[in-house]
Design a protein around this nucleic acid. Structure first.
Lengths: 195, 195
DNA sequence: TTATTAACATACTATATGGTATGTTAATTC
DNA sequence: GAATTAACATACCATATAGTATGTTAATAA
């Protein structure tokens, strides 16, 4: 990896950390460069604006941080219920970077920026769609092997599960990590209600 | 109502509108006073800081805006399933102020400020607890008249419903109002799965 | 080796920001 | 009716902010 490439990565990593904790609009470029060895000239050499850096954040860092955790956990067993349950526990409990206090960077950015910036909204939607499709495929597989009635709409269930994840990430900020456990119990009830 | 009281209300109403759409940290006091007939002197006569105004927002305006809508819809029928369903449709579809694009002011503020300001977190949690208790009481009532097994934990169900609401408010920002309908169908499935 | 360009570094600007200092006016109290 | 205070209004300040202008240095191509 070239030195220039390393600089770009350093900017994006630090931006990710700061934006994850303080939000996009409240994270200044001055703060980013003050906490790295990157100067303002370097920043604006790699990104023509703060928005362009934000877009790179969504498609590069954010996606690379969340996608592998999701993708590997959805296939661990043959039971779609266990797989969906594990997917959420892996994200909520086991993920090495995300915390209950600060929630999920993707959920946070949707909340803050989706209504304010159409570019952000579309990029975030793209990440969401990819996750949605992964869950849908798992539902379809489950229906194929008779674990679930074909009456259910895979898309609806996929979106419903993602909705739950977004909700619990928000609630966790107020109620603390203990709520994650309470929620997972109720999520298990929901999965078992799917016949 | 005194003239001073009216000024206070005007500050809070405009702050509510701006913060609802742009977030707390990105709404400046200059912007609030520029879009009202209030001056900076008046603002700081009524509130000693931006944070104090934010606290008043949460306990006064935000609560008064959301609480009546919730409280009246939870009692409309004798079937707790219909009541919970109506509660969410009233909030999501019928509320005269909230929109799909900007979501729910309370959910938004939790997302943005709960990790950054303990005063905010506690005030927001208090509003949440009040809603939670209302739903719990309705569940307990339903259990009392045999609409629902006593095995279920009313607190868990209440929090789960609120979690769904928080989630759908977030997802709606990306997917648009059409998703509210899709979600409500799946929410109905969940309610009917509660035996 | 020289010319060129990629990859920065530094200094600066215009505007925005939360908050303060110091006024002024209208209402209330005595 | 005078004194007091509540309820503002105006001017100002230090700092923060996204972005620019103009350098400099190290790598690469000719």
């Amino acid at each position: 990896m070239s030195k220039a490439e390393l600089t770009r990565i350093e900017i994006l990593r630090k931006s990710f950390d700061l934006i994850y904790k303080n939000g996009y609009q409240s994270t200044s470029i001055d703060e980013i460069i003050a906490t790295t060895k990157v100067t303002k000239g370097a920043f604006y050499y790699h990104f023509k604006s703060k928005e362009e850096m934000g877009m790179a954040l969504i498609s590069d860092v954010m996606h690379k941080e969340l996608w592998p955790a999701v993708k590997k956990s959805i296939n661990t067993t043959k039971d779609f219920r266990k797989n969906l349950y594990k997917m959420l526990t892996d994200l909520l409990i086991e993920h090495p970077v995300l915390t209950c206090e600060y929630g999920c960077p993707s959920v946070n950015l949707i909340q803050e920026m989706a209504p304010l910036n159409e570019h952000f909204r579309k990029a975030l939607k793209k990440n969401l769609s990819e996750w949605q499709k992964l869950i849908e495929d798992e539902i379809v597989r489950a229906q194929g092997v008779g674990q679930l009635s074909a009456d259910h709409d895979p898309q609806n269930i996929a979106l419903y599960v993602i909705t739950l994840y977004h909700g619990v990430r928000n609630m966790g900020k107020v109620l603390g990590k203990g709520y994650y456990m309470t929620f997972l119990k109720e999520f298990d009830n929901y999965l078992n209600s799917l016949k």
